[in-house]
Nucleic acid binder design. Structure first.
Length: 523
RNA sequence: GGGCCUGUAGCUCAGCAUGGAUAGAGUGCUGGACUUCUAAUCCAGUGGUCAAGGGAUCGAAGCCCUUCGGGCCCGCCA
């Protein structure tokens, strides 16, 4: 908050000078200069006093500047008046930077009490446990983690959750691959397990469904067994998804990201939480049983607009839809219902933060990872569904904004990068797809980035110990990737280009300020 | 058809909430410096109808309206 000190110093001095000169009190701005040549900080007091004093803005600014120069100040080295009327200041950079460096080294750097220790949940990552994390997932993870860090600095009591959809179709696909597709459980090339499952098993099995209807049939059976839970297939699925999850988490930790609790979808399904929520929604009249029309026999959420379709929650065959799985989880995150789970330690993460996981076994330990506000980080393609969930939750819990969807535009691959994946796109960028194998794995990017950085650092510092070089290279690679994912607005699509990401190494040292206001606005 | 997002320099983007200075940065390109070359670094130059049109305003990249281009979403899939 050293910048604040600089602004405050200027503000209070200008205020004092203005009143000493007998000028009327006005609410003036002290802000960053619009262009470097004007200096570092600008003040518009001249314009505001022009009318009451009947003088030119520059004249007034001049009088203030003359007084200002007599002041002994710690952060300002120059005061200038622009002919237009602005009062411009140049910071004393050496003093300023020294102060920034000193204060940023402190543990409480940047801390401000906005949250008053209120409980807030951030859910991010939430990748299906059947594949490795790709560059698109990384944007989600970095946004979520950055958000959590900012909220933590803002004195919120932050809990970070990662939702593991271990009972869905995508998981069923790799189980089919192992059980009926002839894939060995171990990769022949000794690949990282999540890469093996995603790059090899998942991609080829989905390709084979078209030609092998028998496999497609197996998928339906596997999916059903996964949801029901006690079969041998379900136990096998559990073993596989946990192994994938373990590898995914390694990538997250590598990115410097840690969590508080893992939530497993299979447990939410088996906990019967859904029935409780459903009864509540029925009794509150939030959902209706449709008697006629194309949705006859389904339980639906009525759309309040004429152009939007009603949303089906329960099909005419009694099976809940995808969105229905998200509702009980949302109510759990907000602590609106009795918690059916017990908690056990999954592991202790690098920064000593304990990672918990839910369990349905009564092992006695209860924890609380709920929040008064819940932020769910999901890309904006899910906006429509998230809007419906937000609406339902606000009907449940009337007070304020409790469920917040933090959306962002997705990451696409540049035409050149797609070409390297043997995909011709005619110069256009392309949406990633795990199913089609169109993606770039996060680990690969970090590896290549790290290797490149290692060479650069070694060239400049040949005397350094090799272990240290590797460590530095990894840190720089992680920093570069994180920065690349967060540097632009959430509502802008990031087109990822492998070659370009390697060339951006010059920007590694960039100290950037995250536009906190913009992000906080959403919470 | 409806909804959300987007359009600013060759490229990638800031700036837009809260209108006010000559519209900025990085990169690219051109030239120069660093006693040879290359790389790196530094300096200088180059580069814009702020998608288009209209409106309100003393004043618009920014606010309002219209149009056009691009992306995404709209399933008894997940």
């Amino acid at each position: 908050m050293t910048l604040r000190l600089l602004f405050d110093e200027i503000r209070s001095n200008v205020q004092k000078i203005s009143s000493d000169l007998g000028y009327p009190l006005v609410r003036f701005d002290v802000s960053e200069a619009s262009q470097p040549e004007f200096g570092d900080v600008s003040c518009n007091i001249g314009f505001l006093l022009a009318k009451p004093l009947k003088k030119r803005p520059s004249e007034i600014a001049e009088s203030i500047a003359n007084e200002y120069k007599k002041y002994k100040t710690s952060f300002v080295s120059q005061v200038n008046v622009h002919p237009s009327g602005y009062l411009n200041f140049v910071a004393n950079h050496s003093a300023f930077i020294k102060s920034v460096m000193q204060s940023s080294a402190r543990q409480d750097y940047g801390k401000f009490d906005l949250g008053k220790s209120s409980k807030i949940v951030v859910e991010h990552t939430s990748v299906n446990p059947n594949k490795a994390l790709h560059i698109g997932h990384v944007r989600n993870i970095v946004i979520g983690d950055t958000m959590a860090r900012i909220l933590n600095k803002a004195c919120y009591d932050v809990r970070v959750l990662n939702y593991v959809d271990d009972s869905g179709l995508q998981v069923a696909d790799i189980i089919v691959g192992f059980r009926y597709g002839g894939f060995d459980i171990e990769s022949a090339q000794n690949q990282k397990f999540d890469h093996y499952c995603g790059d090899v098993v998942y991609v080829s099995i989905t390709e084979r469904y078209e030609k092998e209807p028998l496999l497609a049939e197996k998928r339906t059976i596997v999916l059903k067994e996964l949801e029901e839970g006690n079969s041998e297939i379900a136990k096998f699925g559990d073993k596989i998804t946990r192994r994938v999850l373990e590898e995914q988490l390694k990538t997250c930790w590598r990115l410097g990201v840690t969590y508080d609790c893992l939530n497993f979808e299979s447990q939410i399904v088996r906990s019967r939480l859904w029935n409780v929520v459903l009864d509540k929604m029925k009794s509150m009249g939030l959902i209706y049983l449709e008697n006629e029309g194309k949705n006859a026999g389904c339980w639906v959420i009525k759309s309040d607009s004429e152009t939007e379709e009603d949303k089906i929650l329960i099909r005419s065959n009694g099976i809940a839809t995808y969105i229905a799985k998200d509702i009980p989880y949302a109510t759990w995150k907000l602590g609106l219902l009795e918690d059916p789970f017990y908690y056990k330690q999954y592991t202790v993460q690098k920064n000593d933060r304990i990672l918990w996981e839910t369990t349905l076994e009564n092992i006695g330990t209860k924890m609380n990872f709920t929040g008064d506000t819940v932020i769910t980080v999901i890309d904006s393609r899910q906006s429509r569904l998230q809007k419906i969930i937000t609406k339902i939750i606000s009907d449940f819990k009337s007070e304020g904004k409790s469920y917040v969807h933090l959306g962002y535009e997705s990451v696409t691959l540049s035409s050149d990068t797609a070409k390297n994946l043997n995909l011709e796109t005619e110069g256009k960028s392309v949406q990633m797809s795990g199913r089609k194998g169109i993606y770039v794995n996060a680990d690969s990017v970090l590896d290549i980035l790290g290797k490149k950085t290692y060479e650069e650092v070694k060239k400049r510092n040949p005397e350094l110990d090799d272990m240290l070089l590797v460590k530095i290279a990894e840190q720089v690679a992680v920093g570069a990737l994180r920065y690349a994912m967060i540097k632009q607005d959430l509502d802008k699509i990031i087109t990822f280009d492998m070659t370009e990401s390697l060339e951006s190494r010059r920007r590694y040292g960039a100290i950037h300020t995250i536009r906190i206001r913009k992000i906080c606005e959403n919470s």
